[in-house]
């Protein structure tokens, strides 16, 4: 079984993030792999372990610091790492990003067919969760998204999808794009041997030219949306904290009554 996992470099959620000229700027320290992508790597590793054979490719798109995300995937047990990096990609919207990832997936798929692409359900810094659908549509592969459970048998993948109104079981033939939620599994910790090996493991770096992509099809100029204004929300004004000495509940109720909320 051959599985490609997309991973994204995101800043630590506690770190400072801001907007400059309509683009996200991040403090350089503390960045790592998007936490929800750990579930994607774990899902891929569990599938090849169950199958008794297979290879996992970790793919990331981004600037020089993005390579940290595929290194993390190698530490967890991925076999190959690919970093797509090109200045022209900066400022891409979800459709541009899907175009780039789809081209990289096709390149790997052309070398030897892939069975699955596995992604996290969302990037915790962007969280629009549109990418897995966009990727499946772009590749014209099966779309199995928001999986809280995943099995593969007889050339078909089956997921459990936990929606607010129903639990769905959805099946589709391979190849498929699967996004997994944080309910799907518990990610493993990297072991020392893999950490050491990951340091020396090669990372393939591909530019748009190697993916045969026209730079004008991606990046800020192709994006369908523009950030026109961004400002940090001010902290809540007039915050009050009281310590309960026997009348905390009354104080809370009076606050709610005063605000007209009850």
């Amino acid at each position: 079984m051959r599985i490609l996992v997309t991973v994204k470099h995101t800043p630590d959620l506690q770190s400072q993030r801001s907007f400059t000229e309509g683009a996200v700027t991040r403090t350089a320290e503390d960045g790592s792999m998007n936490e929800l992508d750990e579930n994607a790597v774990e899902a891929a590793l569990q599938l090849i372990e169950a199958a008794g054979e297979g290879e996992v490719y970790a793919l990331t798109v981004g600037g020089a610091d993005a390579v940290a995300a595929v290194r993390k995937a190698l530490q967890l047990g991925a076999h190959h790492a690919i970093h797509v990096s090109d200045e022209a990609i900066a400022g891409s919207d979800v459709f541009g990003t899907a175009t780039v990832i789809a081209a990289a997936v096709r390149k790997v798929h052309a070398e030897a067919p892939l069975d699955l692409v596995v992604t996290g359900m969302a990037a915790l810094d962007g969280l629009t969760s549109m990418l897995p659908t966009a990727l499946a549509a772009e590749l014209d592969w099966s779309q199995l998204t928001l999986a809280s459970g995943l099995t593969v048998a007889d050339g078909e993948a089956t997921i459990i999808r936990h929606l607010p109104d129903a639990r769905e079981t959805v099946s589709a033939p391979l190849p498929a794009v699967v996004s997994v939620t944080d309910e799907a599994n518990t990610p493993r910790y990297p072991n020392f041997k893999l950490i050491m090996a990951a340091r020396k493991a090669p990372v393939a770096t591909w530019s748009l030219a190697e993916l045969d992509l026209d730079p004008s099809a991606v990046g800020a100029s192709a994006a369908r949306t523009t950030v026109v204004d961004a400002s940090e929300r001010p902290p809540r004004a007039n915050r009050q904290v009281v310590t309960d000495t026997g009348d905390g509940g009354t104080a809370l109720a009076d606050f709610l009554v005063e605000r007209g909320l009850v």
């Binding site: 902290p235 809540r236 904290v241 009281v242 310590t243 309960d244 905390g248 709610l256």
Partner: peptide, 22 residues
């Protein structure tokens, strides 16, 4: 840090009293 109104205390004491008051 993000609350308009906070009570440092046990919810088992605070909620019943708040319910009565409301």
């Amino acid at each position: 840090e993000i609350s308009d109104f906070g009570v440092v205390g046990s919810l088992f004491d605070v909620i019943p009293q708040a319910i009565e008051r409301i």
